[in-house]
């Protein structure tokens, strides 16, 4: 297995090569991921789609460097991933904001290397970007679910990472807030030009957001199919093209999981 060459690294941001993951529990080993190969281009928005428990979160944890793969390798910018790195920030499924810090404290959490002035400037910028102005001194317990999720995205963006990993970030929100958060995320993505890998079990969500949807199969998870969503933003969710892509993915999931 050779690392990808420098020339391909320019457009390829992330490469997952032959990744397998086996968990051992009570002496029994369970195959969670099988032969995952995936490439993501710089600035791309990719959704990993599959039902809960299929292993897509495990894949995201491997890509983020939190868990090592059993075999295979992940490369980002041509370098093998060996651990978590502030250049790529993970936004958690459950609310990962620190409840003991204020909004400002949370956004400034990763900015400990900056001089105070620059730190304050960045905090102010991202408070505004995610629409939390007026809540700078509030604690997470005083915020709504949507605000907490935006706060976590702001905390991630503040350290200016070039990749974001999001693990079902909107799963706990009500459906109206969820719709708003999606367009918010797209706005931020277009403004900040990040590469985004987004895990979800929501077909509509994946088709609304992603440039490409990676459909994962049931355990052991394999990549069932990759669907290109070639509709420009903002997407009309009643257009025939949108419905066709959505129904195609729905069928694909049905085939893979027999739901």
């Amino acid at each position: 297995m050779t690392p990808p060459s420098r020339t391909t690294a320019r457009e390829t941001k992330l490469r997952v090569q032959g990744v397998n993951k086996v968990f051992t529990r009570d002496g029994k080993s369970v195959n969670v991921l099988e032969d995952i190969d995936l490439e993501i281009r710089d600035g791309e928005f990719v959704c990993l789609l599959g039902p809960s428990g299929c292993g897509k979160s495990t894949l995201l944890n491997i890509v983020a460097g939190f868990t090592p793969p059993t075999s295979g390798q992940v490369y980002i910018d041509g370098e093998p991933v060996t651990g978590p790195d502030p250049r790529r920030i993970f936004v958690f499924q459950e609310r990962g904001v620190f409840p003991w810090l204020t909004v400002e404290g949370n956004i400034g959490f990763g900015l400990f290397r900056l001089p105070p002035k620059e730190k304050a400037r960045r905090i102010a910028h991202y408070v505004k970007l995610v629409g939390l102005s007026g809540f700078e001194q509030a604690y997470p317990a005083e915020l709504s679910g949507g605000m907490k999720q935006r706060l976590e995205v702001a905390r991630a963006l503040a350290v200016n990472p070039d990749m974001l990993f999001l693990d079902e970030p909107f799963g706990a929100l009500d459906s109206i807030t969820r719709l708003l958060m999606r367009s918010e995320l797209l706005r931020i993505w277009e403004a900040e030009k990040k590469t985004i890998l987004f895990v979800t079990h929501d077909i509509e969500e994946s088709v609304q957001l992603a440039d490409r949807v990676v459909v994962m199969s049931a355990r052991p998870a394999k990549i069932q199919r990759v669907v290109e969503i070639d509709i420009p933003h903002p997407r009309d969710i009643s257009s025939p093209r949108y419905l066709k892509l959505r129904d195609g993915i729905f069928e694909e999931i049905g085939l893979a999981h027999k739901v």
Binding site: A64, F66, G83, P84, D85, P86, I89, F90, F92, E94, G96, F98, W100, L101, F109, G110, F112, V159
Partner: peptide, 25 residues
């Protein structure tokens, strides 16, 4: 574990992780 991982993700050393994440949590 989420809090630890988030802290580690921002590049904190073990000492900083203990002081800024584990202790307040």
């Amino acid at each position: 574990p989420m809090f630890r991982l988030a802290g580690a993700n921002f590049g904190l050393s073990i000492a900083a992780l203990l002081r800024r994440v584990v202790f307040p949590a």
